[in-house]
Write a protein that binds this DNA or RNA. Structure first.
Lengths: 222, 222
DNA sequence: CAGGATCCTTAGCGATACTG
DNA sequence: CAGTATCGCTAAGGATCCTG
């Protein structure tokens, strides 16, 4: 599709980059991985992108079949990934894993709820023998279900039917807790995290990232 | 590192894109996946990148620890991936797989030897029961070893010690053969492919892409 | 306030030419 | 061969303004 600035290379990598290689494009896709979003939600998640550029990217991604916009006539438009766009998820996870070892960006740097949740999904290795449970997690004013089941963590939009524990915090605080679960009680004390329910459940969830359960599939193949 | 145009986002994806998100950067990494290359070889593989931009990208990738240049004083400089840069391989394979479904770029479009070889490695599913063998493959004047063993294909730089068959062709021709192995005899007849040795071996290798061996691990999980 | 559109400025890109 | 220098062009970035 992109004739003007195409790589003009038949390789799959180059053709993929013709579609999602423009600046901000992959971060927009990242934001849409967990749940469809509105324009203003994307702007909040990506505060460093200007509105016109976000608008351009969304249109280009839509033209190329990566993103679809629903509710064209009434109410706020919702942007969501197409089937094909959703297939970028493994690639984005691999890219994110690689980027963990990159130097930290200059402060101040943003951190969207989606970013932290995707990291949580990918990094947590809970005990596969533990009984399934759902947690309620409010980040940036939006509620998510954190489902721990069969040795992995899955994040779903919306509140769970029944929650083992409910917590509310900010993405940056959650990210800090995932790096150092030991600061949980301090974070609760000074109000950066509010927990309703079973605190040890939260402890175990956080430690599933830094201290993966050591079983059959705990360590990477390599 | 990149202060001027960093995404300023702590997410792993954004930090990765701060390093390899600039135009042409990932295609340079792709070219270096199989073997270290010289500046002129990279230019031949990526004919649509201007020399100054390639020079800039190589320097930035070097500054960011993705690429290393060897032989600093004497003879031609060689660019190779660092340990960290090599870890981009799974992500590039996932991106390339995704890009296969993208629309073809406008003609004329280039196709490097490395591109086709990486695709061959990723797409071929030979019979795991078949005995191991090496083929010699000359593309664009460089010789590679195509190793078929334990149900997969591996491409190594340089000629094999003993080759079950030797062939010489161009990347575009090989790509066409991988899409439609039936045209092999025609390609041999008109000289686009020259084969020395056992022709049926080549047939089986090509068909391992279009007609994967149907065993335990033949089809993708999803 | 959501969802852009329209400026303007700057920085990165692309093509060509040039040099050690 | 392996880059560097120059330069016009276009995309990115930022601000403001518009429209329901």
């Amino acid at each position: 599709m992109p004739t003007s600035r195409s790589y003009r290379d038949s390789c799959g990598v180059a053709r993929a980059l013709d579609v999602v290689g423009e600046r901000w494009a992959l971060l927009v896709v990242r934001e849409l991985l967990l749940v469809p979003q509105r324009f203003s939600e994307l702007r909040r998640a990506l505060p460093n992108v200007s509105s016109n550029l976000l608008s351009d990217r969304l249109r280009e991604l839509e033209d190329n079949g990566v993103v679809r916009r629903s509710a064209p006539t009434e109410g706020p438009r919702i942007y969501e990934l197409t089937e094909w766009g959703r297939k970028l998820e493994p690639m984005l996870r691999a890219l994110g894993d690689w980027g963990i070892d990159a130097p930290q960006p200059p402060s101040p740097s943003s951190l969207s709820a989606t970013s932290v949740l995707i990291f949580l999904e990918g990094a947590a290795r809970p005990d596969p023998e533990a009984p399934p449970m759902d947690c309620s997690l409010e980040l940036d004013g939006r509620v998510w279900t954190v489902r721990v089941a069969s040795g992995r963590v899955q994040v779903l939009p919306g509140a769970p039917a029944t929650a083992a524990v409910s917590l509310r915090t900010e993405p940056a605080t959650l990210s800090a807790l995932l790096s150092d679960p030991g600061t949980l009680t301090a974070a609760c004390a000074d109000g950066r995290v509010s927990v309703v329910g079973d605190l040890p459940v939260v402890e175990r969830l956080l430690r599933a990232v830094t201290e993966p359960w050591s079983g059959d599939r705990a360590s990477a193949p390599q």
